[in-house]
């Protein structure tokens, strides 16, 4: 181990010792579950290390709270999507049900699409999902959203631009 690596490891160690307990309490208040809170404490410090931020944090409390807050939001949305997905699956005939192994993969994909669409207006998102997933024609989408087909095209171009270039293989 080089001297730099040693110093960095000491810094992470100090950060962890000094801030673990309040962060865990803070997360527990948000999540209401000690196990999830403990998980996210770990995830927060992993983010700090993998993000290369450990070296130069001047104000650790707001810094850690921001990262942990993002992780909470992420987990919350993930649970919400999973619930919606399971409900949608329950309506499917058995033969169209994806395998349990596929479940995790689909969920990850949904989560990524959801993030890629984040910030777009409701109708823009809806037009994109109807066109790409439900494969409706522009006329059908226009009717559902009660807008003109030229609006549908504008919505789609905007969503195609944001979503498809936010995704990666």
């Amino acid at each position: 181990m080089s001297a730099d690596e040693f110093i960095l490891q000491q810094k992470v160690h100090t950060l962890y010792s000094n801030h673990r307990s309040w962060l865990q309490r803070w997360l527990y208040r948000k999540l209401g579950n000690a196990c999830d809170a403990a998980d996210l404490v770990q995830d927060t410090f992993i983010s700090v290390i993998t993000g290369g931020y450990a070296d130069d944090i001047r104000e650790p409390k707001p810094f850690l709270a921001t990262i942990a807050g993002r992780l909470v939001a992420h987990r919350w949305r993930r649970n919400q999507l999973e619930t919606a997905y399971l409900e949608a699956l329950a309506a499917l005939p058995v033969e169209l049900m994806p395998s349990p192994e596929a479940h995790v993969l689909v969920l990850e994909a949904l989560l990524e699409i959801d993030r890629a669409l984040d910030g777009l207006p409701t109708r823009v998102k809806e037009a994109f999902l109807l066109a790409h997933l439900e494969e409706l024609s522009y006329a059908q989408i226009a009717e559902r959203l009660n807008v003109s087909t030229s609006s549908v095209k504008q919505y789609l171009t905007r969503a195609n631009r944001q979503c498809l270039f936010a995704l990666s293989v």
């Binding site: 939001a73 919400q80 949608a88 959801d114 809806e126 997933l133 494969e135």
Partner: peptide, 25 residues
């Protein structure tokens, strides 16, 4: 993706959740 299930999960109209939720992204 299983298209209809994916659509229903992601659609903001079938899941009107985006405003005012706790821990909003």
């Amino acid at each position: 993706l299983p298209s209809t299930a994916a659509y229903k999960s992601l659609s903001p109209l079938t899941n009107p959740v985006s405003a005012g939720k706790p821990g909003s992204p």
